[in-house]
Amino acid sequence: MIQLIECPRDAMQGIPDFIDTSIKAAYINQLLEVGFHTIDFGSFVSPKAIPQMRDTAEVLEMLDLHKAQSKLLAIVANVRGAEDALQFEEIDYLGFPLSVSETFQQRNTKASIAQALETVESIQNLCEVKGKEQVVYLSMGFGNPYGDPYSPELVAEFVEKLDQLDVKTISLSDTIGVADTDLITKLFEVQINSFPHLTFGAHLHSRQESIQEKVLAALKGGCRRFDGALKGFGGCPMAKDDLVGNMATEVMIETLEGEGFDLQLNKAELGEAMKLANSVFH
């Protein structure tokens, strides 16, 4: 079964002009009608680092969750953020960005990889107490622009450490859109064969014309969990100056359905969400 994760947080976070809280909530409420597995809806991080997400708690209060089937995921970058997020019963997953690149870990969370792994352990302990699940994003998981060491074997070392910490879901993240199809297939194949008890996701950034081939490559490698954002908006503001957008969800849906997967989405509500995206991200 495919898990499709819609990421309005990732789509919004790099936009310099503040999006009104009520507009954010209205958009996420529309996304909740579609039937995605999870909505990555906000983050509990420093407002200085990501000003756009300073109203995540207020947005959460405005969400209509009484009949929503989708789970909610919030990104955190440290233990304090995790503690803030865990005050809300409505949140199912905490996402933490752990980087294979030392340079990017410092840029993204102002911590070393070693410190970040300690944070992952602390957050995992908090999640287990509260009955929540941590999703770790292995950013720069397909290479980096900084000249830092990278290999599929290095990724496997990170997965091994996360497995020892009892993290169950790991999203391999191509933060800057450098992965080719062969690497995508190989990386998922190796990790899924080595750690069959874990769930591996694909959080790939891509130019529009490469989305279909990247989805097919991840599928071939055994991946069944995909992150995207409608219309391909967003990208990581901490990575490089030129943002490579998220995988456009509508293209992923078309590709996955073309491969015979029934995603059980409400297409009418999806159409409304696409229209709303145009006004939110104008």
Score class of each variant (00 low, 15 high):
residue 79 V to E: 14
residue 69 Q to C: 09
residue 98 L to R: 01
residue 34 V to E: 11
residue 56 T to F: 00
residue 170 I to H: 09
residue 4 L to W: 08
residue 207 R to I: 13
residue 219 L to N: 08
residue 62 M to G: 01
residue 57 A to P: 11
residue 127 C to T: 09
residue 141 G to P: 07
residue 256 L to S: 10
residue 24 K to H: 08
residue 185 T to H: 12
residue 105 Q to T: 07
residue 51 P to N: 04
residue 31 L to C: 13
residue 120 V to Y: 06
residue 12 M to W: 01
residue 160 E to G: 02
residue 184 I to G: 11
residue 257 E to F: 04
residue 241 D to M: 13
residue 17 D to W: 01
residue 193 N to D: 12
residue 273 A to G: 06
residue 233 F to R: 13
residue 250 E to L: 05
residue 255 T to H: 10
residue 195 F to L: 05
residue 240 K to T: 15
residue 103 T to R: 10
residue 53 M to W: 00
residue 115 Q to W: 02
residue 157 E to S: 14
residue 116 A to W: 01
residue 135 V to T: 07
residue 161 K to L: 14
residue 212 Q to E: 14
residue 45 V to H: 01
residue 265 L to R: 07
residue 42 G to T: 09
residue 165 L to V: 06
residue 1 M to I: 13
residue 133 E to M: 12
residue 206 S to W: 00
residue 226 F to G: 13
residue 37 H to L: 03
residue 78 N to K: 11
residue 201 G to T: 08
residue 89 E to A: 09
residue 85 A to V: 02
residue 213 E to W: 00
residue 270 L to E: 04
residue 166 D to R: 14
residue 86 L to I: 14
residue 124 Q to H: 05
residue 107 R to P: 01
residue 109 T to C: 14
residue 104 F to C: 03
residue 58 E to G: 12
residue 146 Y to W: 15
residue 37 H to I: 03
residue 52 Q to C: 08
residue 110 K to C: 11
residue 1 M to D: 14
residue 83 E to R: 15
residue 272 E to K: 15
residue 93 Y to S: 03
residue 15 I to H: 13
residue 268 A to F: 04
residue 52 Q to G: 00
residue 221 G to A: 12
residue 170 I to N: 03
residue 261 F to M: 03
residue 95 G to R: 01
residue 264 Q to K: 15
residue 138 L to P: 00
residue 261 F to A: 05
residue 9 R to W: 02
residue 216 L to G: 00
residue 82 A to F: 00
residue 141 G to T: 03
residue 11 A to S: 14
residue 74 A to S: 15
residue 268 A to M: 09
residue 81 G to A: 12
residue 25 A to M: 14
residue 22 S to M: 04
residue 181 T to F: 08
residue 234 G to S: 13
residue 215 V to M: 15
residue 234 G to I: 12
residue 199 T to L: 12
residue 61 E to T: 06
residue 34 V to G: 05
residue 249 T to W: 06
residue 110 K to Y: 11
residue 200 F to Q: 02
residue 130 K to R: 15
residue 124 Q to P: 01
residue 156 A to G: 07
residue 280 V to F: 04
residue 185 T to R: 15
residue 282 H to N: 14
residue 45 V to D: 00
residue 122 S to N: 11
residue 86 L to K: 10
residue 63 L to D: 05
residue 185 T to N: 13
residue 58 E to M: 09
residue 215 V to Q: 08
residue 136 V to F: 05
residue 106 Q to Y: 13
residue 101 S to E: 01
residue 59 V to G: 03
residue 241 D to I: 09
residue 39 I to H: 05
residue 214 K to R: 15
residue 144 N to G: 03
residue 206 S to L: 11
residue 10 D to R: 03
